[in-house]
């Protein structure tokens, strides 16, 4: 989906701030949100791609509002509600009760854990399919506009680059995030010239990005 998460090339975010004495977690709640976020995938019977998609599904104001671990907390809640581990509204109701506002807590979850087959742990898979592309090939990043989860930033779509490496095959996030099936595909690193992406006045640099085979088409 095209959303707030796809930040590459956006203007208006200002300068990068470096905190010299940064702690891993700035506040205690961030550590606990991280830990529950990490565990939420297993508890909800989902996966890493579904978790990333949950981040993207948050309203843009919620995506930004409580920072990185605020996103993790909200995404953990979303997956746990989707999968019927906790009822919708349960976190809000419990939070209100903790604040001393007596409210009824929902008890019946409505969701259900997804049913789908995984063929291994993690995301990498060994596959027999022949590589459609080779190092040195000129390829175009397809101009896809998928409404669900995918991993191709808008800023490369439609542009032509050069394959510079083949990487291990991996499950296609577009499929696993939606519990359809494991569509393991070859993955390639593709190099783009900055001037092709950002115009002739752009800073000179090379952009390398990893693309799944179905994101790419040959350029004759």
């Amino acid at each position: 989906m095209d959303g707030i998460h796809d930040m590459g090339g956006q203007d208006g975010w200002g300068t990068v701030t470096i905190e010299p004495d940064e702690q891993v977690f700035a506040s205690e709640w961030e550590g606990r949100a991280f830990a529950m976020g990490a565990m939420s995938m297993g508890l909800s019977g989902t996966n890493l791609d579904a978790f990333r998609h949950a981040l993207e599904r948050l309203h843009p104001l919620d995506y930004l509002g409580d920072g990185y671990y605020g996103r993790w907390l909200a995404s953990a809640e979303l997956l746990l509600v989707d999968s019927g581990v906790i009822p919708e509204g349960a976190v809000d109701a419990r939070a209100q009760n903790m604040l001393g506002n007596e409210v009824l807590e929902p008890v019946e979850p409505s969701g259900a854990k997804p049913e789908y087959e995984r063929n291994g742990n993690g995301s990498l898979r060994a596959i027999d399919a022949v590589h459609r592309f080779a190092v040195g090939d000129r390829v175009r990043a397809k101009d896809l506009h998928r409404r669900g989860h995918h991993r191709m930033p808008a800023y490369v779509r439609g542009h032509v680059g050069t394959v510079t490496a083949t990487r291990p095959a991996a499950v296609l996030p577009d499929s696993t995030a939606h519990f359809i099936r494991e569509d393991a595909q070859h993955v390639y690193t593709v190099a783009f010239a900055s001037t092709d992406l950002w115009g002739s006045d752009a800073e000179s640099s090379t952009l390398n990005i990893d693309l799944f085979e179905s994101y790419m088409e040959a350029v004759s």
């Binding site: 529950m36 949950a54 419990r94």
Partner: peptide, 24 residues
């Protein structure tokens, strides 16, 4: 997977974290 509405007016992230941990 549906997109989510803005959750304006919710309790703060630290409280919601505590609430989620208690539920789980």
């Amino acid at each position: 997977m549906t997109a989510q509405p803005h959750s304006g007016g919710r309790a703060s992230a630290p409280i919601r974290t505590e609430a989620l941990e208690a539920l789980l």
